[in-house]
Simulated assay, not measured.
Amino acid sequence: MTSRIHAFDALDNFRDYGGYDTAAGRALKTGRLFRSAHQASVTEADLERLAVFDLGVVVDLRRPVERRRQPSKRAANFTGQVLESDLDERGEAPHITFLKSADLTADSGRTFMTGLYRDLPFAPAHLDLFGRYFRALGETDRPVLIHCAAGKDRTGMLAALTHHLAGVHHDDLMEDYLLTNTAVDLVGRAPAIAEQLKGFTGREASNDAVVAFMGVEAAYLDAAIASIEERHGSIDGYLEQALGVDAALRERIAERLAA
């Protein structure tokens, strides 16, 4: 397993998304950019390991209902800033509606995920948190952790935007996004996840359907990027127009993250 992935007792998909080369001929620092799933189930040993990273900013991309259902645990000596949004307070999460109502097949999972990604960059809470995250990157010299529930979709989108802003090659950007499929071992865990879904929905899901829904595919991120380009002309246009990331902020972020 790649050295980017850090093993915990009960924290999935924790990994360093720094270290990639950039178009400026420099590399992103390692030990500064981290991504993961939620921290509601972490053990005391996990909290001790997290404390070692000295996180200065934690960006929780989950909805309020998700945060209430699975509240994050923090080490007693945690001194970082936590960024959250309450803009999606009402309504059921789209993936919950899908699991309750749609046919749980690989094709339906891929169709749902592709549609989800086309809308993901424009949800009010995401616009709010993505913009605040980039402003934090321009201000802090301490490590930053971004996470959602599984650490793959909302988190994957934000990590990809970070890589683009920093000048990471698209191939590396996509490789990092797809690393979720290695970090979580979905194929190996699919039967257990299928059982959990059965208990939740009362319906059977094939292993292929679980992997399609719980994993990531290049087509998902491609759909988000295409949607961004349709509305803003380019990812750079989206960063500036939708998130307020101007040239000065980009320069501050690049300087702070460059090795």
Rank of each mutant, 00 (worst) to 15 (best):
H169S: 14
S3C: 07
N181Y: 15
D107C: 03
P143Y: 04
A224W: 04
P64Y: 02
F14M: 11
R35P: 04
T140C: 11
D21A: 15
R69L: 14
R250G: 13
G199K: 09
E229C: 12
P121T: 06
V57K: 04
D141Q: 12
K198A: 15
V245H: 08
T162H: 04
T79P: 08
T43R: 14
A247T: 14
R189C: 04
K198M: 09
T79L: 11
R189H: 07
A40T: 02
G199A: 11
R26Q: 09
A166G: 05
D119M: 06
I96A: 12
P191L: 13
A125G: 09
F53P: 02
E240N: 14
G188T: 11
D176G: 13
A258T: 12
P121V: 00
A7E: 12
D86S: 10
A136F: 03
E48A: 15
L129G: 08
A93C: 03
E255R: 13
P64W: 01
D246E: 14
Y20T: 03
K29F: 00
A106I: 07
A51T: 04
T111I: 02
G131W: 09
P124Q: 13
G151Y: 00
S101Q: 09
D246Q: 11
G131H: 08
G80E: 04
A223P: 07
K73D: 05
R250H: 03
V211A: 10
L129Y: 05
H169P: 07
L116D: 05
G138P: 06
L83H: 01
V58Y: 01
E89N: 02
C148V: 04
R62D: 10
A75Q: 03
D141S: 12
E48P: 04
E255L: 08
G91F: 05
G80C: 04
T155H: 02
S206H: 11
V211S: 07
A24K: 12
D21H: 10
H164V: 09
P121E: 10
L179T: 09
R67D: 06
I5Q: 00
A45D: 14
G115V: 02
N13R: 11
Y17H: 10
G131F: 11
D119C: 05
G18N: 04
D246L: 15
S108W: 00
A183D: 09
H126D: 09
D171R: 15
A258H: 07
V211E: 03
V211L: 11
A23N: 10
A218W: 03
E175I: 09
D171N: 14
T155F: 00
L104C: 00
F213M: 14
S41P: 02
Y133C: 11
G244W: 06
R4W: 02
A218I: 06
P191Y: 08
D54V: 03
I96T: 09
K152F: 01
G202S: 12
A166V: 01
L61R: 07
L50W: 01
L47D: 07
D103Y: 02
I193E: 12
E89S: 13
L161D: 07
A248W: 08
